[in-house]
């Protein structure tokens, strides 16, 4: 009996599986794996204007980035942005979801309203926020004026720009988080609450000992997704501030875009992309390691 023949026979299951997976393997290869490996490859090169690899520089791109004050600033802005948007966004969404989960008349209306921001594209809502932030005709400054507070240059003041962008981002993301959390809340067995009511547990006791633990898989999911999304924010920066003023909102993805498509430095842009990838990877792994212990899967 020849061995290749038996190997061919033994692998019949594996080959069948591979055949079934082929469509997604092809799609992933073309749109995910190839660009990813190409990015890693390019990050070791200096490129010409067309983005072709020209000179192999090894780790010099990375060395340059880690020493560059511009990149450090961009990292700092990104981390601040994540810290501003993720916790507040999720707490807000959880609060709305808890409210909307109550059995009240007309609650369907509020459920639709709270989740409606999901239906608005980043570009469209950014334009609306752009108008609201406008120092002379914007709604926010009008409001401040009527209350008698000093005017704020929302998007033009380096102190305020990142906060302003964060505010609009929270507003944009709250719809999605709300919807996921509401779904999680509605999955909790009603009998658990009834049983605890017979025992005499109050609202906050139930929240702490039933709702939050039972919601933990959903919370864990939404925290992971929100973190990744926050690290990858691009659209609202491009429309609201273009990274300015004085680089204060130059988040890392925007900085990658500028480096590649404005400055045509595909090498350093790729290196930034790789660093971002590693950071998100580390954050996600850390989250899984630390967070999962507190998650109760059914």
């Amino acid at each position: 009996m020849n061995t290749t023949g038996s190997l061919w026979k033994r692998s019949v299951n594996g080959r069948t599986a591979l055949l079934y997976l082929l469509p997604s393997i092809i799609l992933f290869s073309v749109f995910v794996f190839y660009p990813m490996f190409r990015t890693i490859y390019l990050s070791f090169f200096l490129t010409d204007q067309a983005g072709n690899a020209a000179i192999n520089v090894g780790f010099e791109n990375y060395q340059y980035l880690l020493g560059s004050s511009e990149f450090q600033n961009s990292m700092k802005a990104t981390i601040l942005f994540v810290l501003y948007t993720v916790p507040i966004g999720i707490i807000l969404a959880l609060f709305f979801a808890l409210l909307a989960n109550e059995k009240l008349k007309g609650i369907g209306f509020f459920r639709t309203m709270y989740s409606s921001t999901m239906g608005v594209s980043v570009a469209a809502s950014s334009v609306i926020w752009l108008f609201m932030f406008n120092p002379s005709i914007g709604m926010f400054n009008r409001l401040l004026q009527t209350v008698g507070l000093p005017q704020i240059q929302w998007l033009l003041d380096p102190e305020w720009a990142l906060l302003s962008v964060s505010m609009s981002t929270i507003w944009m993301n709250v719809g999605f988080s709300f919807l996921i959390l509401l779904g999680g809340l509605q999955n909790i067995d009603e009998h658990l609450y009834e049983s605890s009511r017979i025992d005499g547990a109050g609202y906050f006791y139930r929240l702490r000992r039933i709702t939050l633990p039972m919601l933990s898989p959903t919370l864990f999911f939404i925290i992971t997704i929100s973190l990744i999304n926050a690290f990858q924010t691009f659209g609202q920066i491009d429309i609201l501030t273009k990274g300015g003023p004085s680089q204060s909102t130059n988040l890392i993805v925007y900085s990658i875009y500028r480096e590649a498509f404005v400055n045509y430095q595909f090498g350093t842009a790729s290196a930034q992309a790789v660093i971002l990838f590693v950071i998100i990877l580390i954050v996600t792994i850390l989250q899984f390691k630390l967070g999962e212990r507190k998650v109760h899967y059914q």
């Binding site: 067995d189 009998h191 009834e194 009511r197 017979i198 005499g200 633990p213 039972m214 059914q298």
Partner: peptide, 21 residues
């Protein structure tokens, strides 16, 4: 009276055990 003031206990059909405890 609220359920806890009625001085009773209840066993549910699906037991209503807390899965995380």
């Amino acid at each position: 009276l609220s359920p806890d003031k009625r001085d009773l206990s209840m066993v549910f059909q699906n037991y209503a055990l807390y899965p995380h405890l």
